[in-house]
Nucleic acid binder design. Structure first.
Ligand SMILES: [Zn+2]
Ligand SMILES: [Zn+2]
Ligand SMILES: [Zn+2]
Ligand SMILES: [Zn+2]
Lengths: 163, 163
DNA sequence: ACATGGGCGTTACCTTATAACAATTCGCTT
DNA sequence: AAGCGAATTGTTATAAGGTAACGCCCATGT
């Protein structure tokens, strides 16, 4: 159902990519009995427009331009809803949010953030998470929530820098 | 020279712990030819007072009370200096800073943050980092900087919750 | 019809962070 | 010892990120 490798850094038909991910998010929302209201759905669509993270205020500007509320809570509430229900992720390093590319899949994402083109990829992080759990267990620490984010160069931009 | 297991969650002689870590930080600063000025040194001491993270404004209040500047850049610059030179760490999840407990050791820290008592431990994260590098390499992504932070329950507070 | 609760819009405010400039101090050369 | 450029500090001002609290509306169930 889902791609094995993230497409974020590869050229691909993104309109298909976004539509497909939105469809999977809608299916997941239905399965969980969530109310994907117009604002929430629109925010998810906006996040899906690119493999980038967006700040809450950037999202808010878009909403306001489309006739939704124009105050911060409007954006923050929709974003929080999406994050809480696994349809989006929060990138603490960027104070920003990105659509989840694997809705409903129970994944342990590692975020790879390109410092040149700002692309964000959600890499499979099960082994990373396992190593983390092990390190925590050694200290008797019970992990509940995790943020694993890496900043660096994506393959495309790496070629550019080499020049 | 350094402890194998972090003490953060264990009862220990913290005044000795802090003094020792400060001494190692000073040695490292000397080795690198860094200028550990009064503000910078004081900020490090403040961070070392507890195994907690402190917000920049909390640090600033302390500085101001002691006759240093009372404007945000004073705190942010000192904190940035400490972070850049490996004497402190920034916890993006908390918008806060903590003293490095292993200055000069070239460690790959994983931060364990207790949501009850706010204690922060710096766990050895070499295996986690290795797993992350591997995941990134699969995508051709060159990792430069990393944030690995976990929120959960420290062993002490876990006993409390069980009751 | 009516009560209930969730979601949305708004006001108001708080916290976190940075840009830019001036005055000073430091480390070094002459 | 004087002088110079670079680094550091203090200050002003403002940008960016985030939340509390209130009331209205609408969907749902009785
Ligand atoms: Zn795509
Ligand atoms: Zn995801
Ligand atoms: Zn200690
Ligand atoms: Zn450290």
């Amino acid at each position: 159902m889902s791609d094995e490798a993230p497409l974020a850094f590869a050229r691909h038909d993104h309109s298909h990519c976004a539509a497909d991910t939105l469809a999977r998010a809608e299916a997941e929302a239905a399965r969980l009995g969530l109310r994907l209201t117009p604002v929430r759905r629109r925010v998810l669509e906006i996040l899906l427009e690119a493999h980038r993270a967006m700040g809450a205020y950037e999202v808010l500007d878009r909403l306001a331009a489309e006739g939704f509320g124009n105050q911060p809570p409007v954006a923050y509430r929709a974003l929080e809803f999406l994050v809480e229900n696994g349809l989006a992720h929060r990138l603490r390093r960027l104070n920003a949010f990105a659509a989840c590319m694997h809705p409903g899949e129970d994944h342990a994402p590692v975020f790879l953030i390109c410092r040149v083109c700002d692309a964000v990829a959600e890499a499979p992080g099960a082994p990373v998470r396992a190593a983390l759990d092990h390190a925590a267990a050694d200290l008797g620490f019970a992990v509940e929530r995790v943020n694993i984010e890496a900043v660096g160069l994506c393959p495309v931009c790496a070629r550019g820098e080499a020049a």
